Simulated scan of single mutants.
Amino acid sequence: MKTTIAFEDFSKMDLRIGTILEVKDFPEANNPSYQLTIDFGDLGIKKSSAQITTLYKIDDLLGKQIVAAINLPKKQIAKFMSDCLVLGAVNGKDVILLKPEIKVKNGSVIS
């Protein structure tokens, strides 16, 4: 377990639902990854890199809703700028995406 943080620190995270619009292979990444373009509704379109190639094919991801942290600083990954962090559960070398059970409005807040 990591160090305990104050609830106020956690509440600074802006976790939202988005829908994956586009997926591209990302051969320049150090680990097998995809480049994702994600629609967060009124918050706009954001991009992310995700190491999810072991369980997900490109066609499986299109239109899938995901959970992402959208208020982290941008991160340069190879020649790609990531705007958000897609969340998933790590199971060995696999990452299982976190997603809503029922389709919700893009940009919906996770609380």
Results as ranks from 00 to 15, higher is better:
Ile58Gln: 15
Ser11Asn: 15
Ala6Cys: 07
Ile38Asp: 02
Lys64Tyr: 09
Ile20Trp: 04
Val67Gln: 06
Ile17Cys: 09
Ser33Arg: 06
Thr19Tyr: 06
Ile77Pro: 02
Ala69Trp: 00
Asp39Ser: 12
Glu101Tyr: 04
Gly41Gln: 05
Met1Phe: 08
Leu36Thr: 09
Leu87Gly: 01
Glu8Gly: 04
Val86Ala: 06
Ile102Tyr: 10
Phe7Asn: 11
Val109Thr: 14
Leu21Pro: 01
Asp83Lys: 00
Ile77Met: 08
Lys74Pro: 08
Thr54Pro: 04
Tyr34Gln: 14
Asp14Ser: 12
Lys79Ile: 09
Glu101His: 04
Leu61Glu: 10
Leu21Gly: 05
Leu72Ala: 11
Ile17Gly: 02
Asp14Asn: 09
Ala29Cys: 13
Leu72Pro: 01
Pro73Gln: 09
Leu72Cys: 10
Glu8Ser: 15
Asp60Ile: 10
Lys57Gly: 09
Ser33Met: 13
Glu101Ser: 05
Lys74Ile: 06
Gln76Met: 14
Ser48Tyr: 01
Phe80Gly: 00
Gln65Phe: 03
Ile70Ser: 02
Ala6Trp: 05
Gly63Lys: 15
Ser49Pro: 00
Leu72Trp: 05
Lys105Ile: 13
Ser33Trp: 00
Ile66His: 05
Thr37Arg: 14
Leu98Arg: 04
Thr4Pro: 10
Asp39Trp: 09
Ala50Cys: 11
Glu8Val: 11
Tyr34Val: 12
Gly44Cys: 12
Ser33Cys: 14
Leu87Thr: 03
Asn31Ile: 08
Glu22Trp: 00
Phe7Cys: 05
Pro27Ile: 07
Tyr56Cys: 04
Leu72Lys: 02
Lys103Asp: 14
Lys57Ser: 12
Thr19Gln: 07
Leu62His: 12
Asp25Phe: 05
Lys24Arg: 14
Leu87Val: 00
Phe10Ala: 08
Ala89Lys: 14
Ile102Met: 09
Val67Trp: 00
Ser111Met: 05
Pro27Glu: 08
Gly107Gln: 05
Thr4Asn: 14
Ala68Leu: 03
Asp9Ser: 06
Asp14Ile: 13
Leu55Arg: 15
Ile5Pro: 08
Met1Lys: 11
Lys57Glu: 14
Ala68Gly: 12
Asp25Cys: 04
Val90Pro: 04
Ser33Lys: 05
Asp42Thr: 10
Val86Gly: 04
Ala29Met: 09
Lys57Asp: 12
Asn106Cys: 13
Asn31Leu: 12
Lys75Ser: 09
Lys99Trp: 02
Lys47Gly: 14
Leu15Phe: 02
Lys79Gln: 13
Gly107Arg: 07
Ile45Cys: 10
Phe40Gln: 02
Ser11Trp: 11
Gly63Tyr: 13
Thr4Asp: 13
Tyr34Ile: 11
Val109Gln: 12
Gly107Glu: 06
Lys75Glu: 07
Asn106Ile: 06
Ile102His: 12
Ile70Asp: 03
Arg16Cys: 08
Leu98Ile: 00
Leu43Tyr: 11
Lys12Glu: 12
Ile5Leu: 15
Gly44Tyr: 11
Lys79Arg: 11
Asn30Gly: 13
Leu55Thr: 09
Met81Trp: 03
Leu87Asn: 02
Gln76Ala: 12
Gly92Arg: 01
Ser49Tyr: 00
